[in-house]
Structures are given as C-alpha cells and as structure tokens.
Amino acid sequence: MTKWIDVCATSDIDAEDVMRFDHGGQTFAIYHSPDGKFYATDGLCTHEKVHLADGLVMDNIIECPKHNGRFDYRDGSAKGAPVCVNLKTYPVKVEAGKIMMEIGK
C-alpha cells in the first residue's frame, strides 16, 4: 500500500536548493531543481552519514557538505570518490502547491 506524506509547500524551497525533512525517525532531503521539479532522497550522505541538506545544490547535483561527495539527486547516483554508494530516492508529487513524497513500507 502506498501512502503519500505531506512534506511542505512548493514555495518553501527555493529553486536549485534543498531542504531537510524528518519523518517517522527517518531523515530525507527534498530538492527543487532549476527546471522547477521536485525530488526526494535519503537525507544522509552514504559516505559518513552527514546531512545533505547542509550541502550545495548546483544544477542537478547535491554536494555533500563534509567531503564534497556528489550525487545526482534525480536518480541518487554517486558521482565518484569519496562517495561510491548511491543514494536512495523516493517518489515525489506536487498537488495544489504541496509537495508530497512516498516513503514506502
């Protein structure tokens, strides 16, 4: 069964930016891409579990604030050393100005 969870309003995240979102003991990172789309990934870097929301978004890349590991936040793919494990991504939809994500089981 899928369940959509309210995250925030679309206006809460600037374009080309990221926001931290905690839910049910988990932490996520929600992105607003420069072309106006929204994405969600696990909130912690796969290298040393640092909050990615403190990092920098440039185009479709989130850069980890600790050692500059890079991920494409659209598919979670790790873009080379020091990060080699991909980030988990989650489905996101926008309805009536609200961002919602699906966390799964």
Binding site: V50, H51, D54, G55, L56, E63, P65, K66, N68
Partner: peptide
C-alpha cells in the same frame, strides 16, 4: 556547529 558553515564556505 555541525555543518552550518559548509555551504557558504563552498560558495
């Protein structure tokens, strides 16, 4: 504290 300065330092 933590990574508060990371993003601006990077920029």
């Amino acid at each position: 504290r933590g990574n508060t300065i990371a993003r601006d330092i990077r920029l």
